[in-house]
């Protein structure tokens, strides 16, 4: 579904991604772990063009988002195509990024109406269904500033799902939350995993990574150091850097 090959990315003189390659198949739930500054967020953001890469190739469901020619020149698909390709991926941010001037319901129907061209009437029933799913139907007319962090993040998840993505990207979805609020968000993500949604989740929640993901990726210094099935990764990490990282957390 997603294929990233040899992704390089630098910010100024610092090389943040140094040849990251990853394949994601349908139904995969991949947890990305690693120390702060290792490039986890940057990698995720490269997949949906929030950052542009300097070298490498990204294919999404058989369509090429970006490729690098023999001369080392990186070429993106035309803007309209790139936007269409990236729409197959939904994203949830650490800071929620809900639209503050819209109510919960308006947040969710905004993209279906504006991007897909649905009428409001057609967009509302599925939006309410999604709100029911994340347990927030009673908040449909509230503004985001009146929600708790956990509720905001669940709205953000519903908003992403409203575009019916094939893949969901999560960048530390619980890191901005008070500890007692992480559970409700993790439950929602877990529920998506049970429905076989394809997901990449950058997370510091090791228990969650172990229980929910099918594969765990350990990143350090802009590289994927180790990539293993979840159970194996935590039981017997092969690489010394992975071991050091996991021991440090424990």
């Amino acid at each position: 579904m997603i294929s990233a090959q040899g992704i390089h990315k630098r910010f100024g003189s610092t090389e943040v991604l140094r040849g990251v390659s990853l394949h994601i198949d349908k139904g995969d739930v991949v947890a990305v772990i690693g120390p702060s500054g290792s490039g986890k967020s940057t990698f995720l953001r490269c997949l949906n063009r929030l950052e542009t890469i300097d070298r490498g190739r990204i294919d999404i469901e058989g369509e090429t988002l970006v490729d690098t020619d023999a001369g080392g020149v990186c070429r993106y698909a035309a803007d309209a195509d790139a936007r269409r390709i990236c729409r197959k991926m939904g994203m949830v941010f650490q800071q929620f990024n809900l639209f503050p001037h819209f109510t919960v319901l308006q947040n969710i129907i905004e993209a279906p109406v504006t991007v897909k061209g649905l009428t409001r009437e057609a967009a509302i029933p599925p939006a309410e269904e999604l709100l029911r799913k994340v347990g927030l139907l009673h908040k449909r007319d509230a503004y985001p500033s009146h929600l708790s962090g956990g509720q905001k993040q669940r709205v953000a998840i519903a908003r992403a799902l409203a575009m019916e993505p094939d893949i969901m990207l999560f960048d530390e979805p619980t890191s901005a939350l008070d500890p007692e609020l992480t559970g409700e968000v993790l439950r929602t993500i877990r529920q998506l995993a049970e429905e076989h949604m394809t997901m990449i989740v950058v997370t510091h929640e090791m228990a969650f990574a172990r229980d929910v993901s099918t594969r765990v990726i350990f990143m350090d210094g802009g590289e994927i150091v180790e990539e293993r099935p979840a159970a194996e990764m935590f039981a017997s990490p092969a690489h010394p850097r992975t071991r050091a990282f996991l021991n440090h957390l424990a």
Partner: peptide, 12 residues
């Protein structure tokens, strides 16, 4: 963050 949220939802 507002621009990014809009972009990942497909808004031009």
């Amino acid at each position: 963050g507002q621009h990014e949220a809009a972009q990942v939802l497909g808004l031009s």
